[in-house]
Design a protein around this nucleic acid. Sequence first.
DNA 1: AACTATGACATGAAAACCCATTGTATCCCC
DNA 2: GGGGATACAATGGGTTTTCATGTCATAGTT
Lengths: 163, 163
Amino acid sequence: MALEHLFQGSALNAVDAKGRVSVPAFLRSVIERRGDARSIVLAKHDAFPALSAYDPAYAALRHSKLERLLEKEETNPDAEVEYQRRNMMAFAATEETPYDSSGRIVLPPMMRRKGGIEDLALFLGTGETFQIWNPKLFLADARIPEDMKDIARFRLEERGLGA
Amino acid sequence: MALEHLFQGSALNAVDAKGRVSVPAFLRSVIERRGDARSIVLAKHDAFPALSAYDPAYAALRHSKLERLLEKEETNPDAEVEYQRRNMMAFAATEETPYDSSGRIVLPPMMRRKGGIEDLALFLGTGETFQIWNPKLFLADARIPEDMKDIARFRLEERGLGA
DNA sequence: AACTATGACATGAAAACCCATTGTATCCCC
DNA sequence: GGGGATACAATGGGTTTTCATGTCATAGTT
């Protein structure tokens, strides 16, 4: 799988009272070049207190890849439950949310909680997917390199929210 | 087989006194995009105390796949019996039930019992199919990852049914 | 006639949709 | 290079539509 269009760049956008956020235009353009969908898939990130996001076409691609892998070893009885677990995490634990004509999505309440998102959303392109962080949690995480935190600080300053 | 439209997301809906339940709209929309049917096929899940569900078009796809498999190994004498066994499960052990204009289906009594469904139905999209659980059984099953149970707990909380 | 099954309608809440405003970067012409 | 016009991005607000679900109506059964 060699994806042609990759997510990159960073932005800090406001979450309004209805839980809406603008998905940065430079990320939306990647989504639309990858497929023709106008929605994004959200999941809790498995390592960080943040959300992982991508387009529906990428989700389908991941799935078909996994299927092909499993056809080879379908006889193992434990493999069945393990297969179910992975599908649950890949599909039931995610939510697909469409963006409107001005590029906004509503962060579903469950995802807002799982990602610890409050009134600011930090978008980070990371290649095949992108991440959505509460900037406060980002700056507080010891695993994040200082150079990356500088970027978050810069985005905050831009908005007059510098420490 | 590369399915374009996959089931994803989760929801918790009420089962009324008559055994009717709304199929979540986001699952219905996948069913209708896969074919033009307005019904779902129900079966006991083979690994979990729950129901497995999908659209009629997917059932047909499964069937033709099984047929092709039989053709390949027709030299094996056991293959015919195995084929009959699987075919029986795929058809006799399932029920197709249409949903009405407001998206509700009646859970057939046999399926209600096989799936252990009571007055709440937890819907989980798992890609090619989706599952219907009694949330109580879901939370009690040791094979379900804790992250998934969190989702069920969140759906219960949303309804004011938190533990 | 009572019961049951099923389709139709009503309601309240939530989600999707549309339009308006602002700020910022871009372009073009002088 | 400056100044103004233009296009697009982000955001605020209001209106319409859809969803889930409760309730009723109809029709068939025993």
